[in-house]
C-alpha cells in the first residue's frame, strides 16, 4: 500500500509540476481522441470483422478474391 501511494504521488507530483509537458500532453490527448474516436470509428473499420461473421466466411471470400483468374 505504501509503495502504491508512493507511485501515485510520484506521478501526481510529476504531472502537477509540468510546464511544457502540459502542452505536450494536451497535444497527445487531442491526437488520441482524433485517432481513436473519429478516425477509427468513422473512417477505419476492420473490414474483415465487419463484413463477415466467422473465419470460414472470411477464408472463402479471400480464396475467391485471391483466385480471380480469367
Amino acid at each position: 500500500m505504501h509503495l502504491l501511494k508512493k507511485v501515485f504521488f510520484f506521478y501526481y507530483d510529476g504531472f502537477r509540476q509540468m510546464t511544457l509537458g502540459r502542452k505536450l500532453w494536451l497535444i497527445i490527448l487531442i491526437k488520441l481522441f482524433f485517432m481513436f474516436v473519429i478516425l477509427k470509428i468513422f473512417f477505419f473499420p476492420d473490414l474483415m470483422k465487419k463484413n463477415f461473421s466467422n473465419d470460414r466466411e472470411r477464408s472463402d471470400y479471400m480464396i475467391e478474391e485471391l483466385t480471380q483468374i480469367k
Binding site: 505536450l24 497535444i27 497527445i28 488520441l32 485517432m35 478516425l39 477505419f44 473499420p45 476492420d46 473490414l47
Partner: peptide, 16 residues
C-alpha cells in the same frame, strides 16, 4: 510526444 501513436494510423489502414 508529437510523434507518439502516429504509427497507429498505419495499423488502422491495414484493417480498412
Amino acid at each position: 510526444a508529437i510523434g507518439v501513436a502516429t504509427g497507429i494510423i498505419l495499423e488502422f489502414e491495414f484493417g480498412t
